[in-house]
Design a protein around this nucleic acid. Structure first.
Lengths: 247, 247
DNA sequence: TTGAAAATATGACAAATGTCATATTTTGAA
DNA sequence: TTCAAAATATGACATTTGTCATATTTTCAA
């Protein structure tokens, strides 16, 4: 227990507010949506909340996981470092998503890093709490299994697309994906997520210059418009066509 | 039950031998290695064994899963169809591996197809048996979770490599991967798995001609040698170097 | 505000990879 | 065995994509 207290002290900052899991809006959207009230209470008593500024790292490749993170509000990117020191984004997380669970469940070091791409509030839930929940609640296990299955499906789709689709198609697809993932601002066209050209490039799997050129091309073709990092989705059918997505 | 009997009749062929799960060599290597004897009995009574010739398809993208397949002996490729009708291999399975579980657990249609790449013997285990096992045995759930985690880790590594490594590096890496996955023949150098150049290309994520050229290059550099589809691994340190793999 | 650093943009070019055409070899069925 | 079809191999070339150089713009701290 002493360890945990020390750990919490290290992680906490003055501004961090400890939320109440029972009424947590993020929990209803998460894998914890169906667990018993008793279990919610246990999580509530053992969890630890933390705020992250945009750009702040949650965990790093190679470190050992001590629990999982549940995103309360905000946006997280999961990324890996390639040979030439070039980052590759492999997944995103938003409200209700959990992060850092793959390595913890496998009992391995993190194979990816996680970094906030917006102001983010997360809760940390210690490993022993999760493991005992798996033991007690088979429905929770099924939620976890479905989550992993969904991630695996998306990852295998990415493999297919990286191997076979040209960069232009992947760029259009990535823009549509970001729109689905994080939605639009109240104006109905501006994407809620704001990424640098370099980050977009590492998501698409291309050079930063190529990403910039393609975005400019899409702008001139009136598929999107942008002012700096604020990107507006103008022509969804057009983007679907460029992405070579039909049905 | 009638449905199941009909299904089994459709799947079975005269030559198919019904193995005994209790002493199954493949089970010891599988996610079923730790389950209780009672559960083994239930699986044994409900499973159905089937033989597949090289090239025979086990299931197809878009179909609905009714259970999972456990590989007894042989080799299976998991592949997806791309836009231009080009196949992409996303995973392999061997003795003790289970196949077709991702879609079944997620309650979705298959997102990939599975095809034997060698004479293969598999056992089919109905969905209800697996689901009740998850419910009863949390240790089994953990095995499943670890399996999915491992697949996800490999998939995300593939994403990184497809996005960032040149084809030559990926080819060397794929050859080393196949050697690890399926091992070598008794001579200690010939790879046990036999794939067409086209299949190797769809694993590496490149054009068939490029795959052929790279293999010829590796042969001339004495990294490998081959006679048709029988590939010998000659220089492992050399291949590791070409693959840009260090530590 | 101002200036340096970072991010974005664009051109010119190089390199990697894919495509097409066409041999050559291998395979498998008649 | 024999022949046609499929697989493998190779050259020539086109295309895509990446790299490098260099502007231009934006950002942010002093």
């Amino acid at each position: 227990m002493l360890n945990l207290v020390l750990f919490q002290k290290t992680m906490s900052k003055k501004e961090d507010i400890q939320h109440d899991c029972e009424h947590c809006h993020a929990r209803y959207k998460s894998i914890f949506c169906q667990i018993a009230p008793d279990e919610v209470k246990i999580i509530n008593e053992n969890k630890w909340c933390q705020s992250l500024e945009k750009g702040q790292q949650l965990f790093a490749e190679g470190a050992y996981p001590h629990g999982i993170f549940c995103v309360n509000t905000g946006k997280i990117k999961i990324h890996q470092m390639g040979d030439e020191g070039r980052e590759q984004i492999v997944r995103f997380a938003k409200e209700g998503d959990i992060v850092g669970y793959r390595a913890m469940l496998a009992g391995e070091k993190y194979s990816s890093s996680a970094t906030a791409i917006d102001t983010t509030s997360i809760c940390f839930i210690p490993k022993n709490v999760i493991l005992s929940l798996i033991e007690k609640d088979s429905n929770f296990s099924i939620q976890l299994i479905k989550l992993l299955s969904s991630n695996l499906k998306h990852a295998e789709e990415s493999i297919l697309h990286l191997a076979q689709k040209p960069v232009r198609e992947r760029m259009a697809e990535s823009l549509l994906f970001l729109k689905e993932m994080y939605g639009l601002e109240p104006d109905g066209i501006t994407m809620s997520v704001s990424l640098s050209r370099e980050e977009i490039a590492t998501l698409v799997g291309t050079a930063t210059e190529t990403a910039i050129r393609l975005l400019s091309e899409f702008k001139s073709k009136k598929l999107v418009s942008f002012e700096g990092r604020k990107i507006q989705i103008i022509d969804i059918p057009g983007l679907l066509k460029v992405a070579n997505i039909h049905d």
